[in-house]
Design a protein around this nucleic acid. Structure first.
Length: 432
RNA sequence: CGGGGUGUGGUGUAACGGCAGCACGCAUGCUUUGGGAGCAUGUAGUCCGAGUUCAAAUCUCGGCACCCCGACCA
């Protein structure tokens, strides 16, 4: 993509109404813009990051045997009355009247909808197990929004729901999804902790949260760094300095961001909605269910909270909006300038043909300092510069620098192209 | 929902009750160009509504918006 075609611009000024690091950097870099309190617009750069995160999520979800679908945001009151949650969640659920005075809700979650769907397609033990997921917008009328992308009223959520014949099959899949979740967060450049937490309104069992340690987190986690034991402070009987239940080490406390959670729902929803299947003996049994959520936007914000420096964002390769940032500097004189332009255009064309996702800063009239400072803020992992210095060596040289490296290297264009082609085959890359 | 705070061009900010100013951006022109260039000329603003006052960005009341702390939180 040409940077001259990018809709957003970076901003030199810090937004005055954002405190959280992720929101400040993402707003300045032109990834997101606040629309209302707790409601953000995703700009093209931000949407590309979201897309990369979602691709990772989809790969991992599909690998568990789940399939993707798309549920509706609008929800009929009647369905939610059957589970008692029209009233139960009335503080958090947007509940509105349509033109004919009928009550409808905006989905804060989709257990009711999938249980209803299950009744359509699950009748026999032969139909189980099944798992479906979606990546879609959710609405929750949070009493207080917080920390940029971490706590919003309208947010994207990946929600997975599984259906099982019995508790042990549910446990089997539940564990499988737990592994997939850990893999997702690791692939996004985060270090997740899978911790026990309260089951909330769904189950007396503990649920599991996936927490990423971050000074900007809203949860407090009690954990043992050595044995991996971890609980949410909400339910933990231990405090910092106590002995780890799995060894003799001391547990410690830290702030964390909850990027995902998984719940054993059991038969809570199938019971209320009458979701049953016939077993081998022709007997009706309740279907066992579990639900599993990830907030991709929250993941995005958390990645920024963890991966940044004083100059801007330092995206991990896997989720960067682009893999490579090709920057054409202005020439010192018109002859040099046109050589730079020509070499840059050629390289951009070549990379595009090879399907390498590159952002090409083709903008005229920007000083070197401005272009490089903006590139650092946007945080694409690898920077390729063509300018007076490289042109002086002939048009077959470019300068390459990793976002986190201090000094650039001068390298030959052809070997660069060879290396990028190799890299492209190693990781999933989108065409610009 | 309780408490605290803030609203000034697109962005960030200044102005004792007394001419709304600065910087960035944007536009035009010229010069520049390896770490957020220079000069010149332009562009654009007091959240909304009442009130006090000769005079309100400034004081009062109401509303709205946003931020922070707490409570809450699949």
């Amino acid at each position: 993509m040409r940077q001259s075609e990018l809709f957003s611009k970076v901003s030199r000024e810090e937004p005055k109404d954002e405190i959280s690091v992720n929101a400040r950097l993402l707003e300045r870099g032109g990834f997101i813009r606040k629309f209302m309190a707790g409601v953000y617009v995703f700009l093209p750069l931000g949407w590309r990051v979201m897309d990369k995160i979602n691709s990772i999520i989809k790969e991992e979800m599909n690998a568990t045997g789940a399939t993707e679908l798309h549920l509706s945001v609008l929800q009929p009151k009647e369905l939610w009355d059957m589970t008692g949650r029209w009233k139960g969640l009335n503080e958090i659920m947007y509940q509105l009247k349509d033109h004919s005075q009928r009550m409808v809700g905006l989905a804060p979650t989709h257990e009711e909808a999938v249980a209803w769907l299950g009744k359509n397609f699950i009748q026999s033990y032969r139909d189980l197990p099944k798992a479906i997921y979606q990546i879609q917008v959710k609405f929750r009328d949070e009493l207080r929004v917080k920390s940029g992308l971490v706590r919003t009223r309208e947010f994207i959520m990946k929600d997975l729901y599984s259906f099982h014949a019995d508790a042990s099959d549910l446990d089997r899949y539940y564990k499988r999804v737990g592994e997939a979740y850990l893999s997702i967060f690791k692939r996004c450049g985060l270090k997740p902790l899978m911790i026990e937490a309260s089951g909330g309104a769904f189950t007396k069992d503990y649920s599991h949260e996936f927490q990423v340690l971050s000074p900007y987190g809203e949860d407090t986690i009690v954990y043992c760094p050595k044995h991996g034991w971890a609980q949410n402070k909400e339910i933990a009987k231990l405090k910092a300095g106590d002995k780890c239940p799995l060894g003799s080490d001391q547990v410690t406390e830290a702030k964390g961001v909850e990027v995902g959670n998984i719940f054993r729902l059991g038969t809570r929803f199938s019971k209320d909605l009458g979701l049953t299947y016939k077993d081998k003996f022709g007997q009706n049994n309740l279907v066992w269910m579990a639900s599993y959520g990830i907030g991709p936007a929250r993941v995005m914000g958390t990645i920024v909270d963890v991966h940044h420096d004083e100059r801007g964002i330092t995206w991990p390769d896997s989720v960067a909006p682009f893999g490579f940032h090709l920057i054409a500097l202005a020439g010192g004189n018109s002859k040099e300038g046109s050589k730079i332009k020509k070499a840059s255009e050629q390289l951009y064309k070549k990379l595009s043909e090879l399907g390498i996702d590159v952002l090409y800063d083709d903008r005229d009239g920007f000083s070197t300092g401005e272009k490089l400072a903006e590139a650092d803020l946007i945080g694409i992992p690898l920077r390729i510069v063509i300018g007076p210095k490289t042109i002086a060596k002939g048009s077959s040289f470019v300068e390459v620098k990793g976002r986190k490296e201090a000094k650039p290297k001068l390298i030959n264009v052809n070997s660069l192209i060879k290396n990028l082609t190799k890299l492209k085959n190693k990781r999933p890359v989108k065409n610009a």
